[in-house]
Simulated scan of single mutants.
Amino acid sequence: MEDDEEFPPVLLDAPDLNPGLRRFWRAFSDLSGDRPVGVGTGLIPMTAMLAYAKDIDGDTDPQDLRRFVRFVRAVDDEFLKAEANRNSKPNAEPG
C-alpha cells in the first residue's frame, strides 16, 4: 500500500502475524499471480516457489527450501479450500 492510502477495515481488524511467518505470507501474496488459471484456480507452481526462495529470499540450503515450500503450500492450500467453498455456494461471484 502507498503511504497515503487508508487500510481497509478488514485489515485493521486482522490478527497480528508472527514476525517469523511474514516472509511466507509475503511470498504467498507475491506468488499468487504465478498460479495457472483455467477452469478453476490452480496451485502456485513449486518452480515459482523455489525460484522466489532462491532469488528473493536468498535460500540455498535444501532444508530451508523444503521448509519454504511447505509453509507457502500450506497457505496456498487454505486459500484454495476457501476459494472452492466460496465458488460452491449458490450465486457465488467469480473472484
Rank of each mutant, 00 (worst) to 15 (best):
G38E: 03
F7L: 11
K89L: 14
L80S: 02
A84G: 07
G40M: 11
D3P: 15
K89H: 13
D3F: 14
D55P: 00
L12E: 09
G38I: 08
D13P: 05
A14I: 01
F79R: 10
D3N: 12
A74S: 12
F28G: 01
F28T: 04
G58H: 08
K81C: 14
P8A: 13
D30V: 04
I56A: 05
R73I: 02
E2M: 14
D57S: 06
P15M: 05
G95I: 10
P36V: 07
V75I: 13
V72N: 00
V69D: 03
F7Y: 14
E93K: 14
D59Y: 14
V10I: 15
E5L: 03
G38M: 08
P94I: 13
D34V: 00
K89C: 09
S88E: 07
T41I: 15
N85G: 13
P19N: 07
G38R: 00
D30S: 02
L17H: 09
D77M: 15
A53H: 03
D3T: 03
I44D: 00
F68C: 01
G58S: 04
M49A: 05
D4Q: 04
R66N: 08
A74H: 10
G33I: 05
R23W: 09
F28P: 00
F28C: 04
P9L: 13
L11S: 08
D3C: 11
R73T: 09
T41V: 14
L11C: 02
A53T: 02
L12T: 04
A74Q: 11
N87R: 08
V39F: 01
A51I: 10
L12A: 06
M49T: 00
M46V: 14
P19E: 06
R22L: 14
D57T: 00
V10S: 15
P90H: 09
R23E: 02
M49G: 03
T47Y: 04
E2H: 11
I44C: 00
L12W: 05
A14S: 12
P94L: 09
S88Y: 01
R26H: 04
D4V: 06
G33K: 08
N18T: 05
T41Y: 10
L31N: 00
V69F: 05
R86E: 07
R73F: 07
P9G: 08
R23L: 04
P94K: 10
L11G: 03
D13R: 12
V69L: 03
F7S: 10
A51E: 08
D59S: 03
A48C: 02
T41P: 05
V72K: 06
E2L: 09
P62M: 01
N87I: 15
D57A: 01
A51G: 13
T41G: 10
R86G: 13
E5S: 11
K81S: 13
R66G: 06
A92M: 10
A27N: 05
A48G: 00
N87C: 09
R70Q: 12
M1Y: 08
M1K: 15
A84E: 09
T60A: 10
A14H: 11
P9Y: 11
R26S: 04
G20I: 09
F28A: 07
R67K: 11
F24P: 03
N18V: 13
D34G: 00
E2W: 02
K54G: 07
A82Y: 10
K54H: 11
G38Q: 01
D59C: 06
F71C: 06
N85S: 15
R70Y: 11
W25M: 15
D76T: 02
